[in-house]
Design a protein around this nucleic acid. Sequence first.
DNA 1: CTCTGTGCAAAGCGTTTGCAAACGA
DNA 2: TCGTTTGCAAACGCTTTGCACAGAG
Lengths: 137, 137
Amino acid sequence: MKDYKEILKSYNLKATPQRLYLIDEIEKSGHIDIDNLYKSLKIVFPYISLATVYKNINAMIDNGFLTEVKIPHNKTRYEITKNSHAHLFCIECAELKDIIVDNSWLINNTSKNSGYKITNTLITFEGICQACQDKSK
Amino acid sequence: MKDYKEILKSYNLKATPQRLYLIDEIEKSGHIDIDNLYKSLKIVFPYISLATVYKNINAMIDNGFLTEVKIPHNKTRYEITKNSHAHLFCIECAELKDIIVDNSWLINNTSKNSGYKITNTLITFEGICQACQDKSK
DNA sequence: CTCTGTGCAAAGCGTTTGCAAACGA
DNA sequence: TCGTTTGCAAACGCTTTGCACAGAG
């Protein structure tokens, strides 16, 4: 487990063991939903409350350390805020992966055409992952 | 109000007045959330139930006539299913607009790099619309 | 020592379900 | 007439809140 104490301190959050493991779980999984996060934390903290998980997630979303990832017809997941990247979502196994795409052209073009001052771009590709394609052969 | 009876018939849904107005409202607004849809329908059908709105929305999502649009930190909205397009979301006034972008390059590139068979691409630009930029001057 | 965070229970919201009556085809 | 849809009420699931105690700094 990495040392996340400094990170928490920089966000003015106390470094409780629950929080350290919570961050570790999100980091390890890449993207995780509340239920799986709660389940993982229960192994280490049998008496942890779901409310605690929500409170911590929300505190870390509010200060920008975590990002909420909404997927159509699927559970919301959370990831550690990273530089701009797109998501690949498998509609069969629900796997969610990061992928780096060059969207600068897209952004320039869209700002020009719309007059919007664009601050963030969310791209999700839905499809069938390699493993699920192989399975159905 | 357009004639949506044929549309409903083609989806094996009965053309009730509630449904005809519901479709009309979504068409007029472009994108609408449940609460505003319910409010609009209440004007014409004072006794309409929120459950009816949900049931109809869900029936039309299931058969593909409507599409759910999820926006981070905001209410889910519904739109009539159209050809591939991106969304522009204003983080100040919450306006949601369609915009046509050419994403063929993006899709080709991503399929090649990931091995995914991509079936759908969701793009949302977050930013500040022209009107809100002007306001804060 | 102080203030924040935790766990528990209850409340709050948005959404879904079951059912009898009304309605569309 | 028959099967679908409506409106109502209750149930459901996810998320938030209030509070007393525990723990971090």
